[in-house]
Simulated scan of single mutants.
Amino acid sequence: MKAKDKLRTNTLRMLLSAIQTAETEGTKHEASDEDILKVIAREIKKRKESAEVYAQNDRQDLADNELAEAEILQDYQPQQLTDDELDALVKQVIADLGEGAQMGPVMQAATKAAAGRVDGKRLSTAVRAAL
């Protein structure tokens, strides 16, 4: 706020609002670190999807704003896994589950092992390729 960076300030205010909404949904509880990471990932996904829609409708100015917000939010996520690290993680999960592992159990275990360090779409693609 002191730096007068309106985009960052507005984005962080939006994130705080989304976290408060997540805390009050269903049963009131204080959001854990895992819950907050999920909210951040969800908000990033929303921004990227909105940017695509804006770009398709020739509103590049709005698309750029959404992408800038997504970049700011990515600063608050853990370091994302590289492709090599992701492949190693998936192979380890498959080895742990044993031969003949199915997509569902592998995805569930890999999602838990990745703990917010990889996008679900990338994880799903890597699991499919490994199976």
Rank of each mutant, 00 (worst) to 15 (best):
A68R: 12
R8W: 12
I40Y: 04
I72N: 05
A101V: 06
Q56H: 13
E99G: 01
A88Y: 04
D83Y: 01
V90E: 06
A88W: 00
M103H: 13
L62E: 14
K6P: 02
V90G: 04
T9C: 07
K48Q: 10
D5F: 06
K121N: 12
L97R: 10
K45Q: 12
A51E: 03
R128E: 06
T82I: 01
R122S: 13
K46T: 10
L62N: 09
A95G: 07
A70H: 07
V93Q: 09
A110W: 13
D84G: 05
R42H: 10
E85R: 01
E66I: 02
S32H: 09
S124Y: 02
D33L: 13
A51D: 03
S50L: 14
K91F: 00
K6V: 12
L67G: 03
V106K: 10
G100H: 12
D87R: 06
Q80W: 01
Q108H: 01
L15M: 08
E23K: 09
S32V: 11
Y76L: 10
G98W: 12
I40G: 03
D61R: 12
T125G: 11
D33K: 13
G26W: 15
V127M: 03
R13C: 07
I44E: 06
T24L: 12
I36C: 06
K4I: 04
Q74Y: 05
S32D: 08
E85D: 09
V53K: 15
L86S: 08
Q20N: 13
D96W: 00
L7K: 06
Q80F: 00
G100F: 05
R122H: 11
A129W: 05
S32W: 14
R42G: 07
V106Y: 08
Q74V: 01
L15R: 06
A113P: 04
D64M: 13
L15G: 06
I40N: 05
Q56K: 15
L86T: 04
P105V: 03
K91T: 06
E71L: 13
K2I: 07
P78S: 09
R117N: 08
A68E: 10
N10T: 02
Q77I: 06
K112I: 02
L81S: 09
E30Y: 13
Q60M: 15
E49R: 09
E85K: 00
A18H: 11
K91E: 14
E69Q: 15
R8E: 14
R8N: 07
E23G: 08
M14K: 11
D83S: 07
E99N: 10
V93R: 08
L12W: 10
E66L: 01
Q77T: 08
D64S: 12
Q80T: 00
I36Q: 06
M1G: 14
T125I: 03
K91Q: 12
S124K: 01
N65L: 15
A31T: 11
L7T: 06
A31I: 11
T27H: 14
L81N: 02
A109N: 02
R128P: 03
Q20W: 12
K48I: 05
G120S: 02
G120L: 09
K38P: 05
D61N: 14
L16H: 01
D75A: 11
Y76Q: 00
Q77E: 07
T111E: 10
L131I: 02
K112A: 14
D58P: 07
T21C: 05
K4T: 03
A88N: 07
A63T: 02
A110K: 07
A110H: 08
Q20Y: 09
L97Y: 04
K28E: 11
